[in-house]
């Protein structure tokens, strides 16, 4: 057959007049990405659960705590636990749902510069983390007022601004770990499992090591991010402890996050 022929390779001059469109501003990407966190049923309830869990934790503290332990510190602690689980999941899903649901195909054809999309998601998850913590701590404060009024005792506010800031920082580290696992694994199930490995399995291994290896027990603060982060909840950190936090965060957070960001930029979207 004479049908197999060379395809014309030389491009004819493209004469169509080009309208130049304005580039997409970063604020618009932020707005769209924020919308995408709330516009599915699962996304909406995940966000709503932050407020719901704060109220439940506060109510449980009022109901079950003896009146002498109705202090703001206890309310903050009770609320902190569910937040430490839910906020990293918010961060994970903001990234991984694009891959698990394959909406990345549309997202990155509308905004080909993936860094801009990922940066918007990162900024939003950190901001949502901070806003959620402020909301949760406010709910806790209201709970403290109501709880002590019911019990007929004076409200105790023994938590300083510095401690509140440390609690928020500790939760933000959790948020960033979630985000890091999201960009690194790009799978919702994988990243959520990864988060529980980070927060439950690694501390166990670290504890086992510390009980058998004296050298590790002495130096675990430099390596065990969980333990170091935990210090933020109830103490004033020494200069050494801050440095330990920096070193452990670099190993477990900054390095894998950097690798993840490079992978996200290059990975094939299917």
């Amino acid at each position: 057959m004479s049908t197999t022929q060379e395809v014309p390779v030389t491009a004819p001059q493209d004469t169509s007049p080009h309208t130049t469109h304005a580039p997409i501003p970063f604020t618009r990407i932020l707005g769209v990405e924020l919308r995408k966190m709330f516009d599915t049923r699962s996304g909406f309830w995940l966000m709503a659960s932050i407020a719901i869990l704060a109220v439940i934790a506060t109510a449980a503290t009022i109901i079950f705590s003896p009146s002498e332990t109705l202090t703001y510190g206890n309310f903050a602690g009770a609320i902190g636990t569910p937040m430490a689980v839910i906020l990293p999941i918010v961060a994970i899903l903001s990234v991984t749902s694009e891959w698990s649901q394959r909406s990345a195909l549309t997202t990155f054809t509308l905004v080909p510069n993936r860094q801009r999309v990922i940066s918007a998601k990162l900024l939003l998850t950190v901001a949502i983390g901070a806003a959620s913590m402020v909301l949760a701590l406010t709910v806790g404060a209201v709970g403290n007022l109501i709880g002590t009024a019911i019990a007929g005792v004076d409200p105790t506010w023994e938590v300083s601004v510095r401690e509140v800031a440390q609690i928020i920082l500790a939760n933000e580290i959790g948020v960033l770990i979630g985000f890091m696992l999201g960009v690194l694994l790009r799978s919702s199930a994988g990243a959520i499992v990864g988060y529980f490995v980070y927060s439950l399995v690694l501390p166990t291994i670290s504890g086992a090591l510390a009980s058998t290896q004296q050298w590790y027990a002495d130096n675990a603060g430099w390596i065990d991010l969980n333990w170091t982060t935990f210090q933020l909840f109830d103490s004033t950190l020494s200069r050494t402890e801050w440095t330990q936090l920096g070193v452990a965060s670099t190993i477990w957070l900054v390095i894998p996050l950097t690798v993840g960001l490079i992978l996200v930029r290059r990975s094939e979207v299917k």
């Binding site: 995408k36 516009d39 599915t40 996304g43 749902s97 649901q101 394959r102 909406s103 990345a104 195909l105």
Partner: peptide
């Protein structure tokens, strides 16, 4: 790919 959309939207 028409199916590559968030199913919950």
């Amino acid at each position: 790919d028409a199916s590559a959309q968030h199913a919950g939207r």
